[in-house]
Computed example of a mutant assay.
Amino acid sequence: MAEPDQRLYFLLQRAAHQLRTTVDRRCLAVAGVTTAQLGALFAVQDQPGLTQQELARILGLRESAVTALVGRLTAAGLLLKQAHPREHRAVVLELTEDGAAALRAGQPEIDRLNAELRTLLGDDGFVRTAGALHRLAHWET
């Protein structure tokens, strides 16, 4: 039997692509948003009034990417942009009712995905993988 592929970065890229395309398709079907959009909506729900710059930091994206993402979510009526109370060039983000409804619609699909991954990896493997991915996501070289 051949030894499993040990190219970790390559495997992470493939796994991320597989998960993103599968879950995007499922979230679009039930909530009308992608996983990236859900991530932004969850961040705004967790921290109402955060700025686009703060959202970029939370999501680990460039500000230009977040500007486009927020533009799409605002155009779809899922987020509101309002003037920042102290910084004249900044805006704060608020979830709309439609944005909250998209989160409610998407949450069961995210829960289903996590249950499927827990079954695939086993309870111990799920916890260990989540811990390892958390460390990688916050790794600074």
Score class of each variant (00 low, 15 high):
Thr141Trp: 12
Gln82Arg: 15
Glu87Arg: 13
Val127Asp: 12
Ala15Gln: 10
Thr141Ile: 12
Gln18Thr: 13
Arg25Leu: 08
Glu140Asn: 14
Arg26Pro: 08
Val66Tyr: 06
Gln6Arg: 14
Gln107His: 10
Glu140Val: 13
Thr67Phe: 02
Ala101Pro: 02
Cys27Thr: 15
Ala43Phe: 06
Gly49His: 05
Gly60Ser: 08
Glu3Met: 11
Leu8Lys: 04
Ala68Thr: 11
Leu69Lys: 03
Asp24Ser: 05
Ala90Ser: 11
Gln45Tyr: 09
Leu93Pro: 07
Ala105Phe: 01
Leu59Thr: 05
Ala90Glu: 11
Gly99Asp: 02
Leu113Thr: 13
Thr21His: 10
Ala102Glu: 06
Arg104Glu: 12
Cys27Pro: 02
Arg112Ser: 12
Thr119His: 08
Glu54Tyr: 04
Thr21Ser: 14
Pro48Gln: 03
Thr35Pro: 02
Phe42Ala: 14
Lys81Glu: 15
Glu87Cys: 00
Arg86His: 12
Ala90His: 06
Glu3Ala: 13
Arg25Phe: 00
Gln53Cys: 02
Ala130Cys: 12
Gly49Tyr: 03
Leu80Phe: 09
Leu120Trp: 10
Tyr9Asn: 11
Leu93Tyr: 04
Pro4Ser: 04
Leu12His: 00
Asp124Ser: 12
Thr74Gly: 03
Gln107Cys: 00
Arg62Val: 05
Glu116Arg: 13
Glu3Trp: 06
Pro4Gln: 09
Thr34Met: 00
Gln45Asn: 11
His88Asn: 03
Asp24Glu: 01
Ala105Glu: 04
Leu11His: 10
Ala83Gln: 15
Leu28Ala: 06
Asn114Tyr: 10
Gln37Asn: 06
Phe10Asn: 10
Thr22Tyr: 02
Gln6Met: 13
Asn114Thr: 13
Glu140His: 15
Ala75Cys: 03
Ala105Val: 07
Gly32Arg: 04
Phe126Asp: 05
Leu121Gln: 04
Phe126Leu: 07
Ala75Lys: 14
Lys81Gly: 06
Arg20Ser: 11
Gly77Met: 12
Met1Lys: 04
Thr21Asn: 02
Trp139His: 15
Leu69Phe: 04
Phe10Thr: 14
Gly39Ile: 01
Thr74Val: 13
Gln53Lys: 14
Val33Leu: 07
Leu12Thr: 08
Ala40Leu: 01
His88Thr: 14
Leu38Lys: 10
Arg62Glu: 11
Gln37Lys: 08
Asp5Pro: 00
Glu63Asn: 11
Ala90Tyr: 06
Gln47Gly: 08
Thr34Lys: 05
Leu121Tyr: 07
His138Asn: 13
Gln18Gly: 07
Ala16Leu: 14
Leu120Cys: 09
Ala90Lys: 11
Leu121Pro: 00
Leu11Pro: 03
Arg89Glu: 10
Arg112Ile: 03
Ala15Met: 07
Leu120Ala: 15
